[in-house]
């Protein structure tokens, strides 16, 4: 029983990391209609920035905050100078651009800081707490709670502020938003920046566990994409639930299904995905979209 609870809690914590990246992808998709395969790569770059700062004996929290600011700028710059040209064009070309960006970022990180694993200090202590006779690691709880907190802040930003209203207007219909005087281009930059911030938080939280490498979030990106498809590109809540589901299920399958084990647990979301795609192609929580010719 204790093992089971521990597995579920750990699963929720890795699931939260996938959820943050998945949510960033949904955010970018709703604003610009494209899927950013470099979302994980950008988060890795932010984690490297935080790592470099901590090596200069900057306190960890300050370093992470600085990397978050860096991410916001990075996201905005990428949108303005790289993606804008491709945004209203063929989505497939835009996807290839983001893949090029992923390669470039991985290359830059590998060139500057080598492909070796680097130790990243943890924001949370590695102890466990006892709860109803079950020991649970503080890091897992801390990761989950931090990401949930960031999500709530984002949700409030989108629902309660004027900026959020403008961002939603741009996502729903950029042309009408432009006609009503909104600075669409600047808002798109803000949207990309916010998505990058989500990724950076996830990167800083997961880096101690995975150790920092240029390809650290490649697997997480795959999980996040699976969560995006499972939850449906149109449903942020669905995506988060799907990501948690994936995190928990893969953890349980790794331990309780001998054939899968720890090395093949990445196959779990895809087995799930295939079943869902055959039964419910619009995703578990997504809506069917109708396109007019």
């Amino acid at each position: 029983m204790g093992e089971f609870v521990q597995l579920v809690v750990d699963g929720l914590s890795t699931g939260s990391v996938y959820a943050a990246i998945a949510l960033a992808i949904v955010l970018v998709h709703s604003a610009t209609g494209l899927v950013n395969f470099a979302q994980g790569g950008m988060a890795v770059l932010a984690a490297y920035v935080a790592w470099v700062l901590t090596n200069q004996s900057v306190p960890l929290v300050v370093a992470v905050l600085a990397s978050i600011v860096f991410s916001f700028v990075l996201g905005a710059v990428v949108e303005r100078y790289l993606m804008r040209r491709f945004e209203r064009g063929d989505p497939d070309t835009a996807v290839v651009v983001t893949i090029g960006l992923l390669t470039l970022i991985t290359g830059i990180a590998g060139w500057l800081w080598s492909y070796n694993n680097q130790q990243f200090p943890s924001l949370f202590p590695l102890d466990t707490v006892s709860f109803l006779g079950v020991s649970i690691s503080i890091r897992s709880i801390g990761t989950t709670l931090s990401i949930v907190a960031v999500m709530i802040v984002l949700q409030l930003l989108f629902v309660r502020t004027k900026l959020g209203l403008a961002l939603r207007a741009v996502a729903i219909n950029p042309q009408s938003a432009a006609f009503s005087g909104l600075p669409v281009e600047r808002l798109l930059m803000v949207g990309w920046g916010l998505a990058a911030v989500l990724g950076a938080v996830a990167g800083a939280l997961v880096a101690p566990q995975l150790t920092l490498t240029p390809g650290m979030l490649d697997n997480a990106l795959v999980y996040a994409l699976a969560a995006v498809i499972l939850g449906g590109l149109t449903s942020p809540v669905g995506v988060v639930i799907a990501a948690w589901m994936i995190g928990v299920l893969e953890n349980l399958a790794a331990v309780y299904v001998p054939f899968i084990g720890h090395d093949l647990k990445i196959a779990v979301p895809f087995i799930l995905l295939f079943v869902v795609l055959v039964v419910r192609p619009q995703g578990l929580f997504g809506r069917k979209t109708v396109v007019r010719v």
């Binding site: 899927v35 989505p91 490649d218 795959v222 994409l225 498809i229 990445i266 895809f270 995905l273 795609l277």
Partner: peptide, 17 residues
Amino acid sequence: RLGGLAIAMVTIALPIV
């Protein structure tokens, strides 16, 4: 079965699995 970019999002799993 999913339109758009689903093929890209699913096939990325092939090398990783």
